[in-house]
C-alpha cells in the first residue's frame, strides 16, 4: 500500500500534539487533546483506505479508479461518535468548573493519602521542617468525601 508522505507528517503531528495536551494539568487542554487526537485517529482511518480516487458510485468510473469506500463509512461513524462524546465531555468539564471552581485535574485518592502519610512522618521525625515546604507545588487536598471518615 502506498501512503502520502504529507499525510504521515500531519498524522504524526496530530498524535503528538494530542498526547502532549492529554498530559496537561488543565482540563480544558486535556479536552483539546482528546479533540485533536480524535481528528488524528479519524484521519488515520481515511488514510488507511489507500490513495484518493474517483467516488465509489456504480457506473460513474471504472472500478480500479474508485476509492475504497469502507474506511470513509467507518471514519464517518467514528467522527459522529467522537463529536458526540466531545460535547458530553465539555458539559462535564463545565459541571466540574461549576462545582469545584477550577478546571485542574486533581490528584487521585491514593496520591493524596500517600502525601498525607508523608506529611505525618515529617511532623514526627523532624520538627524543624515545615510540612508545607515538602508539598510545595501540590494543591492542598480538599476535604472531599473520599478522605476516610
Amino acid at each position: 500500500m502506498t501512503v502520502n508522505i504529507t499525510m504521515v507528517i500531519v498524522l504524526a503531528g496530530l498524535y503528538t500534539v494530542g498526547f502532549y495536551l492529554l498530559m496537561q494539568r488543565s482540563l480544558m487542554r486535556v479536552i483539546l487533546g482528546i479533540v485533536i487526537l480524535g481528528h488524528g485517529a479519524n484521519l488515520f482511518l481515511q488514510v488507511a483506505g489507500g490513495p484518493p480516487g474517483e467516488p465509489a458510485f456504480v457506473g460513474s468510473a471504472v472500478i480500479q479508479a474508485m476509492v475504497d469506500p469502507l474506511p470513509q463509512a467507518l471514519a464517518l461513524t467514528a467522527i459522529v461518535i467522537t463529536f458526540a462524546l466531545t460535547t458530553f465531555l465539555l458539559a462535564l468539564a463545565y459541571r466540574s468548573w461549576a462545582l469545584l471552581g477550577h478546571d485542574e485535574v486533581q490528584d487521585d485518592v491514593e496520591d493524596r493519602r500517600i502525601r498525607e502519610a508523608a506529611e505525618r512522618d515529617e511532623d514526627s521525625d523532624d520538627s524543624d521542617t515545615e510540612p508545607s515546604e515538602a508539598v510545595a507545588g501540590f494543591e492542598a487536598p480538599e476535604a472531599s468525601e473520599e478522605v476516610p471518615r
Binding site: 492529554l22 482540563l27 486535556v30 482528546i34 487526537l37 462524546l85 458530553f88 465531555l89 462535564l92 468539564a93 459541571r95 466540574s96 462545582l99 469545584l100 485535574v105 486533581q106 487521585d108 480538599e142 472531599s144 468525601e145 473520599e146
Partner: peptide, 17 residues
Amino acid sequence: TAARVRASMTYVIVSLT
C-alpha cells in the same frame, strides 16, 4: 457531586483515550 465529577472525569477521559 464534587467527588463524583472528579472521579468520572478520570473515567471518561481514560475511556475516550
